[in-house]
Design a protein around this nucleic acid. Sequence first.
DNA 1: CGGGCGCTTGATTTGAATCAAACTGGGTGG
DNA 2: CCACCCAGTTTGATTCAAATCAAGCGCCCG
Lengths: 228, 228
Amino acid sequence: MLKDDGTAIRLFRRLLSPADSKVRDSAAEALRVAANDTEWRRNQPCDSAMAGGRIGCVLGGAVRKYSLRSDGHRQIVDLLLMGDFLGLAPTDSCFSLEAVSNGTRIASFKRDQVKALEEAQPAILEMLRDRAADAIRRLEYHLLVQGRTTAIEKVGGYLMVLCQRLPVGKDEAMVLPVSRYDIADHLGLAVETVSRTMTTLRRCGIISMAGPREVIIRQPAILAEGFA
Amino acid sequence: MLKDDGTAIRLFRRLLSPADSKVRDSAAEALRVAANDTEWRRNQPCDSAMAGGRIGCVLGGAVRKYSLRSDGHRQIVDLLLMGDFLGLAPTDSCFSLEAVSNGTRIASFKRDQVKALEEAQPAILEMLRDRAADAIRRLEYHLLVQGRTTAIEKVGGYLMVLCQRLPVGKDEAMVLPVSRYDIADHLGLAVETVSRTMTTLRRCGIISMAGPREVIIRQPAILAEGFA
DNA sequence: CGGGCGCTTGATTTGAATCAAACTGGGTGG
DNA sequence: CCACCCAGTTTGATTCAAATCAAGCGCCCG
């Protein structure tokens, strides 16, 4: 059971689809009670939270899913933010999970627990289906970004996606949860290229930055260009 | 309802997980009856089969899911082969679907039909969940391939994946369902690079080819190298 | 206060894109 | 039936952008 600081319950409520408020409340409460709450430090491996085919939900912070190749190259395949689910496609032994930032919180559920919850509360089954669809869309869209030709388009597209996924207000600075290295390993670029590209974007006035981690997208139309 | 030529029923049976043979038969038959069978020609758009949030299953041939950018560049995000499901993550308005080869067959189901089937036959719900997990794994793995640095690694990895997904016997030639253009647009490379790379792989004795579409992987260990 | 990590910038190299052109095979129309 | 056409493929020459190699900087954390 996770301690009810309000954020988790509110998150679960938001993720559940039914219009009926009582159904949502009841499902959210059932999730809260069933959840195993864990907290992780920066760069700490958190595969263990998913051990035994468990399903997890990121409550705060961020998690990277990646594969380490024999040449030492790290390929990040997915970045999970608050509300994203882990372990929806089990038996991916070739991937590892790590918390990106300190205080990354994950609520996890045993597989049979999930089954029971789904049977008791069909809304939860619906929700998990929606989260799986989210994962597919997220991966497809990332392929679109990574498939672009120039580094400017890749990094620009990446920033746009991140900006839409993070809770960023209008004209408010987006605080990147990820390092330049993370961006590079997610896009298949060299760190230097990412850094250079962001400098270029800044100099062109397309973005502005207050410190390396704080970005404001000044001209979203230009970065979005070319995406259908 | 699709005409029972045997392949579809056999495919559905294979995709369903329950050990109980009768449950599988009954679920497979329910799917066959509910299905809307369509056949498509090479390069023919088949979005219409998925209209209205329908779900589809590739019975034969292949389907590409892609996005056309304003500069005319085509980015393929997924290649669907026999047994793969379409429309699991709806509202992807930015993607189009096309049959890759002549005689591509798709069985499609209305959304409310799917709902009814799932309720009547829990095995079908399980199956769809598994297919969604397949899609996630397929996309994640493709990101791994596309994230590699050199063209040789990308094309090599691509051929390996294709070889595992197609029904290819040991030491039997794999018949590529896709053109060089498709491979290029899926990997984010130029056609010429794909062609050159395959020539290089052939000259190194890593693959051999009987015509551009028939490939035998001679040294799978080398191509798999670096994948965890 | 020191160390190291994360970020940035510069110089050089390399590999893929691009431009250009020839070849192949299957399909069509005369 | 044959000539033609065209999409797909292959090869070559050149260009260009990103990787690599190298080094300095700022800052957070210990």
